[in-house]
Design a protein around this nucleic acid. Sequence first.
DNA 1: GAAGCGTGGCC
DNA 2: TGGCCAAGCTT
Length: 361
Amino acid sequence: MDFPTLRSRLLAWYDDARRDLPWRTPRGQAPDPYRVWLSEVMLQQTRVETVRPYYARWLERFPTVDALAAAPLDDVLKAWEGLGYYSRARNFHRAVQEVASRHGGRVPGEPDAFRALPGVGRYTAGAVMSIAFGREEPVVDGNVRRVFARWTDDPAPAEDALWPMAAALVPGERPGDVNQAVMELGATVCTPRSPRCGECPVRGLCAAYAAGTQNERPAPKKARPLPHEDTAVPVIHRGGEVLLVRRPVRARLGGMWGFPQAIRHPGESASAAAERAAAEGLDLAVRAGAPVASVDHTFTHVRATYHAVRCTVVWGEPRAVRYDEVAWVPWERIGGYALPVAQKRIAALAALHPTGPHPLA
DNA sequence: GAAGCGTGGCC
DNA sequence: TGGCCAAGCTT
């Protein structure tokens, strides 16, 4: 491949076509490494338009490394609420605390030191080192993977081939812009479906374009069928309050708040499973009352149906047996807790129901 | 190396 | 509606 020609055409195109994004500073202005890093973490597996409002709110709330390092995890997760992949927020928080305590509050500009921080993988390290520090480090993300698959007309390029190719492009002036140019091309021109080859500055060097195979590159990977989880959710009332739990950090949605839950056994009713969820997860005896609602939610690798059931306490005080924390929360203060999307939906539906004890309880 | 991890948009 | 996909990382 003619890397020098690719490089110069990409840079020239990027100078003209690059989108104006909040984390991009004007040419010549030094970027803030904390902001570049934040943007890269938020953009992992997440679209630009989704990230925009989160990025702006985050910087108002946590404008600097020191501000974020000093914040409690619950505040951090609340700011991340709805963005998904919550381990990103936990890892970023931990990493920034390390930067504050061990690097004097300065984001390390050495690739090895930065790469050692939690949540920083090969891609993120290359992106932050090149964009924020001008280091000649490559990146391979989904865009780069697709662009190279088409340039080489390879249906499934190996990682061992992609990184050397990406690295061959970087040396020279403006390594951060070179990396961003490939990704920008992938995001706006060399798109997964209906690539705009007519607007591509490097179609003359593209093997897939020459062969007319751009729509079959890269080859789609086969998805596994999603398992289904039929889940009971006890919405436990006491006085004017409802019981929330904080999920263990290791688990799915780790560190986030929500309602207790238990996967239904075959043949088990939602009411029985809701009572069992309280018994096993909280060491608490509850009586199931009226069903509140059913909510379907699809995660990356599992489809869940949540059967929310109103419950009242029969006996005992809740203990966080299978959770990290429990809290009795007045309905009007639920908004202060970081809830994943499905739990928020359950809370909204449950709040529509009368909040006193069930008449038959 | 494969599986686990969120959510929303698009066709 | 349902499958696919998006600036990946960890175990």
